[in-house]
Amino acid sequence: MKTMRREPNVIPGFGITLGFTTFFLCAIVLLPLSALVLKAAGMDFARFVDVITSPRALASYRLSFGAALVAACVNMVFGFALAWTLVRYDFPGRKFIDAVIDMPFALPTAVSGIALTTVFAGNGWIGQYLEPLGIQVAYTWIGITVALTLIGMPFVVRTVQPAILEVQRDLEDAAETLGAGRFYVFRRIIVPTVLPALLTGFTLAFARAVGEYGSVIFIAGNMPMKTEITPLLIVIRLEEFDYAGAAALGCVMLAISFVMLLAINLIQVWGRRRMMVSR
């Protein structure tokens, strides 16, 4: 295929489309991003380190990462269950549920933020039952985790779903005729087959959750050192007109984004190599 396309191509428009795409990308992505990096680079290094390792910043990393990690783990379990249910079982409303999974993609984050806060507040529909159990959700890290779980859920379900669909029924049948029980088949055949997709979904959900802002700030309570996420800290720095400080924290976030992108790519390469889908 590749060699075919390298041959003289009769399709027109290469120059103009490439030019336009590159221009657009440079203007919208590269230029602003380089502004961020250069702004941070313009700082005194010691001050840079100082800003990004201040106790308040460290606390915010811990919260952002911790909550995102817990949320991604929760999603890995429930997202798998959801994807499995949607693929393998037929029940009334299955198609509806399948469509609704994408809701967090389409729902503005501010809306999910205030809505979750209302539901999980001490007097909210769900919060009122959790409060007596000593579980306070709104304005604690649990609330942040709940919001991040909602944001990440479709990523896990939508990556795992096709993978489960592709587990050939024949594989399970083959394992069964070879003497394996249901749970053994699940553990040794299904989970390993779905694993790359599950990890990809996990990483996507995690990456999205680390940077999430809109849905979190309403439910977080935003107490410095306690329930203040890193993106919020950037906003606060900006409001204090501390552009350099904001840029330094922004750089940290950007670096994390790059690491996540890299991780996703590595997982996919690993998954492909493991399955050796050489078709």
Partner: peptide
Amino acid sequence: GVGLVFQNYALFRH
């Protein structure tokens, strides 16, 4: 205790 061979092999690819 039967051995079954499938049309599309059904090998465990991992």
